[in-house]
Amino acid sequence: MLRILIKPELCAGCKNCQVACLAEHSPSGSVWLADLSGGHGRPRNSVELNSRDLPVPLTCRHCQEPECVTACITGALSKNPATGLVEHDQGRCAGCWMCVMSCPFGMISPEALEKKTAVKCDFCQGRETPRCVEACPTGAICLAEVSPETGNNTTPGEAPKEEGLH
């Protein structure tokens, strides 16, 4: 499965991945025109400083056993069995914030403009390379083929594929 791997030691903290994400999910799709002041919402990824003040780029893991999917009361969140991606159907979302409460990594948030539904990384829906990966000048976030062996947690044994309820 294709996943975004993170190499924080390469991150320059330029936030270009965030600009790229914002652009990808803005009406024009263009980095020139994306509203960085918030008019097009917030990026779905983030770059945060760790306790040593070094930048760490963070994006959704599309977990093996996604807690957001488990917590979702409407079926808006699901794990696509074919791609392994955790998908969010805005139309079904009730904005109950069970997923925000449950993602241990803080990777799903209330959408910043309407604040009525959640938003998360959608792996740029069908784009060959996610926009953030393309935009990273240092290779701190990169695409890799992985064979998931563990869950997103200290799960004993092997967790089989989880599709979620929707």
């Binding site: 270009n16 600009v19 914002l22 980095v31 994306a34 960085l36 990273c136 000048p137």
Partner: peptide, 11 residues
């Protein structure tokens, strides 16, 4: 080819 989005927008 990778450009800085903030630079592109002048912010």
């Amino acid at each position: 080819a990778v450009k800085c989005g903030f630079g592109m927008q002048g912010v």
